[in-house]
Write a protein that binds this DNA or RNA. Structure first.
Lengths: 153, 153
DNA sequence: TTATAATTCAGAATAAAATTCTATTTTAAT
DNA sequence: ATTAAAATAGAATTTTATTCTGAATTATAA
């Protein structure tokens, strides 16, 4: 197990909030030298604790205002259905997240799409055409109350 | 409505995958000058299409291997309960996402935590102490099949 | 505890990237 | 077709990232 000290955790918190912070700025708030901060970040990257850096974009501004959480039940829990479903879901760009879960349904999918019409089309033409799907249930997002990528370590 | 051309979309795709790509690299693949790429990115930032840049970290490596999707039903749908619940949820660092949804339950929460014991503790001591909560139902994530922040525009 | 090795850190030097500037070209509207 | 606005290219400048060397700190073993 990798052990992180307080400074590492602070660094991770800052970088998860704003990856554009310069080593200089971080060095200032952490009361360290430029190099110390730089080396720590590089180590976190080498250890794959920081996996990557990404730009986040505004869903509303790119015609993806409609979010649906769709639960999926497979017709039968045979290996082939599972493998096939998971493989196909990976290909669907509308599906941002997919989890195999406990409970009444097998999977839950987070889907981002333009609107209800587009969702209906997606459901009929892209999702339910995957073989092995038994049933689906859609939960429509009325309001995004919270959505962060910040994991407090 | 802001209109994006093909180059803007390509830029967004690249930056959503790797925010550390330099303008030089992007200029090369997009067959544009350094300045052109730079100005386009700055414009996307000004327009708040790009909202921010973040570091993503490996959940497993920071003791957050356990993911739960928890559905919450309020006891009564009065304004005060709604406001209060949403305000409290924002404060909980274990809750990465919270959506007000249609269906049997009012909210669904994505929770990241160390393990089942920690989740039980969280449920008892942090979540269900919020006033106005009627019932909860937890769906445990068996396997993360897909999880991306990439929105294809 | 002390000696030793391995990390971590600081400060300076260098390399690379971001940012600015000016002039030119392209695009869009009249 | 004419004009204004926006987008682009290339060079110059500023800032940041990266490397390097040596010192300080920490961890480990005798």
């Amino acid at each position: 197990m990798i052990k992180l000290d307080t400074i590492d955790r602070q660094l991770l918190t800052y970088l998860q909030k704003d990856a554009k912070k310069t080593t200089k700025e971080l060095a200032l708030v952490l009361d360290l030298s430029n190099t110390a901060v730089y080396e720590r970040i590089k180590k976190l990257e080498r250890q794959k604790i920081i996996t990557n850096y990404v730009a986040l974009i505004d869903k509303e501004k790119v015609e993806k205002s409609f979010m649906v959480l769709c639960q999926v039940k497979l017709s039968q829990h045979v290996k082939n259905n599972i493998v096939q479903f998971e493989r196909e879901v990976l290909k669907l760009e509308e599906v941002l997240e997919c989890y195999h879960i406990s409970g009444d349904y097998d999977y839950i999918l987070k889907i981002l799409i333009k609107n209800m019409d587009a969702y209906r089309k997606f459901l009929i033409e892209k999702l339910t055409v995957i073989s092995g799907i038994g049933s689906t249930q859609s939960m429509f997002v009325i309001k995004e109350v919270k959505n962060t990528t910040l994991i407090v370590s």
